[in-house]
């Protein structure tokens, strides 16, 4: 198709230079996408293929299409894909063991079938028709003519596709959203519970071990302002094990020191 256009002289020289520079790159990175081992690398190569396609669109006067290709596919779709790849097993390479019987053969047949279908459809649509540039077809401009087509001739298809996408998004949200059997006890909940409890005694939190005591070790209970030890300042685990040291011990030492 492009060679035809070249022969008929419809392609301007800069565009031809661009094409012969970028097309091999695009094909190479498309091949690389299949052959590269790391999943992130192949995602990157796919993103590059999309960018080159966008450049081709722009070179052929489909400015809007090219830029939307970058915004939607390279910017959003590929980025989300990359996201998932990074979160799920950064370095895991795909295992090549077939889990479903005959999967490889079926996949290859289906791929060849789809490819053949696409080639035949496109060639049928293109053959026996002279190549006409977008510039000659459009009078009002790129955006306006796409808008007119989309919102008049194809409005039904457009609405159906958008309904489909919304349904898919809702479905994904329903599937991903799980109600937790037990509510998470967050910082805020704990804080509310402290003030709504029976007493305000613990509203400011439990006393930490060793306060007012001679020792600040975790197993020495804090002393309250009136001098009595506060067992609530010791971790419940230590308490259960019986690993609590009586703070009286240190009080005696204090008195002895004062006497000396």
């Amino acid at each position: 198709m492009i060679t035809l256009a070249l022969e008929s002289g419809a392609t301007a020289t800069p565009e031809a230079v661009l094409f012969w520079f970028l097309a091999p790159l695009a094909v190479l990175s498309a091949l690389g996408m299949l052959l590269v081992k790391k999943a992130v690398h192949s995602a990157l190569l796919l993103a590059w293929v999309m960018v080159t396609l966008a450049i081709f669109y722009i070179a052929q006067d489909a400015l809007f299409l090219g830029i939307v290709q970058v915004v939607v596919y390279t910017g959003a779709v590929m980025m989300l894909f990359l996201f998932i790849l990074m979160l799920v097993g950064v370095d895991s390479s795909d295992s090549l063991v077939e889990t479903i019987k005959g999967q490889r053969a079926t996949a290859i047949t289906a791929a060849v079938g789809v490819g053949g279908l696409l080639i035949s459809l496109i060639s049928r649509a293109v053959q026996a028709k002279p190549a006409v540039g977008l510039k000659d077809l459009e009078i009002v401009g790129n955006v306006q003519s796409i808008a007119t087509e989309l919102f008049t001739k194809y409005v039904w298809a457009f609405e159906v596709v958008s309904a489909l996408l919304i349904t898919a998004a809702l479905g994904a949200m329903v599937l991903a959203h799980s109600q937790k059997p037990i509510a998470r006890n967050l910082q805020r909940d704990k804080s509310i519970a402290r003030f709504r409890g029976a007493s305000l005694a613990t509203a400011a939190g439990l006393p930490s071990s060793g306060v007012y005591s001679r020792h600040n070790a975790v197993d020495v209970p804090a002393l309250l302002p009136d001098g009595t030890p506060a067992p609530s300042s010791i971790s419940a685990t230590l308490n259960a094990r019986g690993n609590m040291i009586d703070s009286k011990l240190f009080e005696l030492e204090l008195k002895e020191e004062e006497e000396n």
Partner: peptide, 25 residues
């Protein structure tokens, strides 16, 4: 001056995100 200039800026910005993501990864 292109007719979809502002969209082009958005496209450039979304391309720039790759730099950040790839640097992190």
């Amino acid at each position: 001056d292109i007719p979809v200039g502002v969209l082009y800026i958005l496209a450039a910005a979304s391309f720039g995100v790759y730099g950040i993501v790839l640097a992190g990864w």
